[in-house]
Amino acid sequence: HHGSGALAALHADGPHAGLPVTRSDARVLIFNDWEERKRSEPWLRLDMSDKAIFRRYPHLR
């Protein structure tokens, strides 16, 4: 199991509170979210491209 239990660094406060600090933090969040959702949506594709990251977390651009 590759990303399970990996912890992402999140901004503690300010405008980005609760959001990932780096792209690799964002990838951890996206992976964990996908892993949760694919139980009920097995067709869901995992997209951890930069484009997917920016779409979801525009502050990382």
Rank of each mutant, 00 (worst) to 15 (best):
I53G: 02
W34C: 00
R39V: 11
W43R: 08
V28Y: 06
P58R: 02
A9N: 14
S24F: 14
P20C: 03
G18I: 03
F31Q: 05
F54G: 05
I53D: 00
H2T: 12
L44I: 07
S4H: 11
H59T: 07
P15F: 05
F54I: 08
G18L: 06
G3N: 12
F31P: 00
L29P: 00
S24T: 09
P42L: 04
E36P: 01
V28I: 15
R55D: 13
D50W: 15
S49I: 03
E35G: 05
R45Q: 11
R61C: 10
W43I: 03
H2P: 15
V28H: 06
M48Q: 05
G3T: 12
A8T: 05
G3V: 13
L29V: 08
E35T: 14
K51T: 11
P20E: 08
K51G: 08
T22F: 03
H59S: 02
R55T: 15
I53H: 02
G14Q: 03
I53P: 00
E35Q: 14
P15C: 06
H59G: 01
H2F: 15
Y57R: 00
K38M: 08
I53F: 02
R23S: 08
L29G: 00
G18E: 04
V28E: 04
S24L: 09
A9Y: 11
A52C: 08
L29C: 06
E41F: 08
R37Q: 12
H16K: 05
V21N: 04
W43E: 11
R27Q: 06
D50N: 11
A17Y: 08
A12G: 07
A6N: 12
H59M: 01
P20A: 01
R61M: 12
R61D: 08
E35V: 15
G3P: 10
A9L: 11
L19M: 06
G3R: 11
P58D: 01
M48D: 05
S40T: 14
A17D: 04
A8E: 04
H59V: 00
K38G: 04
R23W: 09
E36F: 12
A8V: 13
M48L: 14
G14T: 03
P15G: 03
H1I: 15
S24D: 13
G5Q: 15
D25P: 01
G18F: 04
L19W: 04
L19H: 03
E41G: 02
G5P: 13
A6M: 14
F31A: 04
P15L: 15
R37I: 12
F54C: 06
H11M: 03
L29E: 03
H2R: 12
P20D: 00
P42Y: 05
V21P: 02
L29S: 02
I30M: 08
V28N: 05
N32G: 06
A12P: 10
K51H: 09
D33E: 14
P15I: 07
L60Y: 00
R45I: 13
H16N: 11
A12F: 09
P20M: 01
P58M: 02
A52F: 07
H1W: 14
A9I: 13
L29M: 08
H16D: 07
D33C: 07
K51L: 10
A6Y: 13
Y57H: 00
P42I: 04
W34F: 08
K51D: 14
T22K: 06
R27Y: 05
L44G: 03
R27K: 10
